[in-house]
Simulated assay, not measured.
Amino acid sequence: MKKVYGSAKEALDGLLHDGMLIAAGGFGLCGIPELLIDAIVASKVKDLTVASNNAGIDDFGLGKLLATRQIRKMMSSYVGENAEFMRQYLSNELEIEFNPQGTLAERMRAGGAGIAGFYTRTGYGTQVGEGKEVKEFDGDHYILERGIVADLAIVKAWKADTTGNCIFRKTARNFNPPAAMCGKVCVMEVEEIVEPGELDPDNIHLPGIYVHRLIQGEHEKRIEQRTLRQREEA
């Protein structure tokens, strides 16, 4: 099965349609599938629901899809770094389903593992738990959260072999693996593609069975917030 494609546009060919649910990996601006996001922007597909930890910043990452009004709903845990995200939400132009960060990651992982739902104490007694089934276990209350199964997962890894076995670096491991798992189809962009056998099996973070299409590309790697210490006087 051929998994390596020449570009993001080619890798997404035949997969995009209006109204679909996309799971996107990344944490802040770390490990985001920026090339695939740009290709989705260019496709002009609309009315998207996107499950992602956040929506990037105003001019980068998923923020580009917000700027073009291609996203109808976000399933997220954090919106603080994107002014347009906040503006659309407060103006009732964007639907948001807030999720505690760990709950969102587990919803993705559960969907990828074939688990329809799970009970968690997180969110009980808050707005997060409103309207959800509640059960008591050992004297504590838990709410039912549903697993996420996305039409498409877009993720970024550091290195992969041609079969899709891949390695993520540092913070990029937070949401990319569960996002990849929960997609009916997973498209992954990487910095380097190698031949099978070149990656240490003990270092594989996600097996290639979850990855359907691969691209290699150059990435910008922006710094979300640059903080510098004042230079000390000599």
Rank of each mutant, 00 (worst) to 15 (best):
M1W: 04
M1A: 05
K3I: 00
Y5T: 00
S7V: 00
K9C: 00
E10D: 02
L12I: 03
L12D: 01
G14E: 10
L16G: 00
G19I: 03
G19T: 08
A24T: 14
A24K: 09
G25H: 05
G28L: 15
I32H: 15
E34W: 10
L35W: 13
L35I: 15
D38I: 14
D38S: 15
A39E: 06
I40H: 04
K44S: 12
D47F: 09
L48M: 05
A51G: 01
S52G: 08
A55C: 02
G56Y: 06
I57Q: 00
D58C: 09
F60D: 04
F60V: 12
G61H: 08
G61E: 03
L65F: 04
T68V: 09
R69F: 08
I71W: 01
R72N: 13
K73W: 09
M74P: 07
M75N: 13
M75I: 15
E84R: 11
F85H: 09
M86Q: 10
R87D: 06
Q88D: 14
Y89G: 08
L90Q: 15
S91E: 14
L94N: 07
L94H: 11
I96V: 14
I96T: 03
E97I: 15
Q101L: 10
Q101W: 06
G102F: 15
G112I: 12
G112R: 09
I115C: 07
I115M: 12
A116L: 11
A116E: 14
Y119M: 15
Y119N: 15
R121V: 14
T122E: 05
G123Q: 07
Y124A: 10
Q127M: 03
Q127H: 09
V128Q: 04
G129L: 06
K135Y: 01
K135V: 09
H141R: 12
E145D: 05
R146C: 09
L152Y: 04
A153S: 09
I154D: 02
I154A: 02
K156R: 14
A160I: 01
A160L: 02
T163V: 07
K170G: 00
K170Y: 08
K170R: 03
T171N: 09
F175Q: 04
N176E: 09
P178E: 13
A180T: 04
A180W: 06
M181T: 09
M181A: 12
C182G: 06
C182F: 08
K184S: 13
K184N: 14
V185F: 07
M188T: 03
E189T: 05
E195H: 05
P196I: 01
G197D: 07
L199C: 14
D200C: 00
P201F: 01
I204Y: 11
H205R: 01
L206M: 03
Y210Q: 03
Y210I: 08
Y210A: 07
R213T: 05
I215E: 03
E218I: 08
H219D: 07
E220V: 12
E224N: 07
R226W: 06
T227M: 04
L228P: 05
Q230A: 02
Q230R: 02
